[in-house]
């Protein structure tokens, strides 16, 4: 079966600084996959390359077998990939609902805006309460919910999440990870970058370890949890 998302020997760079060196990874349909690694490993870069905000230098990239390497970001969304960026990056002066509306910018999503909005409000009742508030004035947790909701508005097949738990209180972190379960239950495929290694390994099926722009290790969540190197270096056990 063709994987949902597939990267083969992908390289990327910022100017003359190369940040990714031949990264290959696959995510099957309905799977949740984690990417872990130290600061500066290139995790965010990987996400940016997949969603097309950073052009790929080399390699191939496809969704459901359709090549997406080299597509500009706005075309990648149309292929069914939504990206929850690092640090949320909401439009602070737009209201919550306007943020959600712009999440449904692509034609296919506009057509079912109302339906999608209902679903998202059902997932995040809090956002419905705050629909008219400028997004920048909400709490960090609410903003993260809004960022995820905004990405879901395009009705994606694959959801990329870049450190959704960063800067949140433990209880909210818990909620975010529970959310990953619910999103998967809806049939979405998830690729998630996390520093919270222990917790992310509880929600994903498999994970990759990225170090200095290259995949160092990969395996099922259970395997990685048992790996002594991971336990020492990333879980502090």
């Amino acid at each position: 079966m063709t994987p949902m998302l597939s990267l083969a020997t992908v390289s990327a760079a910022y100017g003359s600084f190369q940040a990714l060196f031949g990264v290959s990874l696959d995510v099957a349909r309905g799977e949740a996959v984690g990417v872990i690694g130290p600061n500066g490993a290139g995790k965010t870069t990987l996400m940016r390359v997949i969603s097309g905000i950073l052009p790929m230098r080399d390699g191939t990239m496809s969704i459901e077998g359709r090549e997406i390497g080299g597509l500009p970001a706005h075309r990648v969304v149309e292929q069914g990939i939504a990206h929850v960026p690092e640090n949320r990056r909401l439009f602070p002066r737009l209201s919550v609902e306007e943020n959600l509306r712009i999440g449904a910018f692509i034609p296919s999503a506009r057509a079912r805006f109302a339906e999608q909005l209902d679903w998202v409000y059902q997932l995040f009742p809090r956002l419905k309460e705050r629909r008219g508030q400028p997004a920048g004035t909400m709490s960090g947790g609410e903003q993260q919910m809004c960022a995820i909701a905004r990405a879901l508005m395009s009705k994606p097949k694959v959801l990329l999440m870049d450190e959704p738990s960063a800067g949140l209180a433990p209880i909210v972190v818990q909620q975010v990870f529970e959310l990953v379960h619910r999103i998967r239950a809806e049939g979405l495929t998830v690729l998630i970058v996390e520093q919270n290694v222990q917790q992310v390994l509880d929600v994903v099926d498999r994970a990759y370890l990225l170090e200095v722009g290259a995949i160092k290790l990969s395996g099922t969540a259970a395997e990685l949890k048992g790996n002594s190197f991971i336990r020492e270096a990333y879980m502090g056990l």
Binding site: R93, E98, I102
Partner: peptide, 24 residues
């Protein structure tokens, strides 16, 4: 309108609008 919202959004975050499917 959608385009109008995108126009207001783009001045707040030029890069991220692309992720919403907006062609800058």
């Amino acid at each position: 309108t959608y385009i109008g919202t995108a126009i207001r959004a783009i001045s707040q975050d030029r890069e991220i609008v692309g992720l919403m499917g907006v062609d800058q």
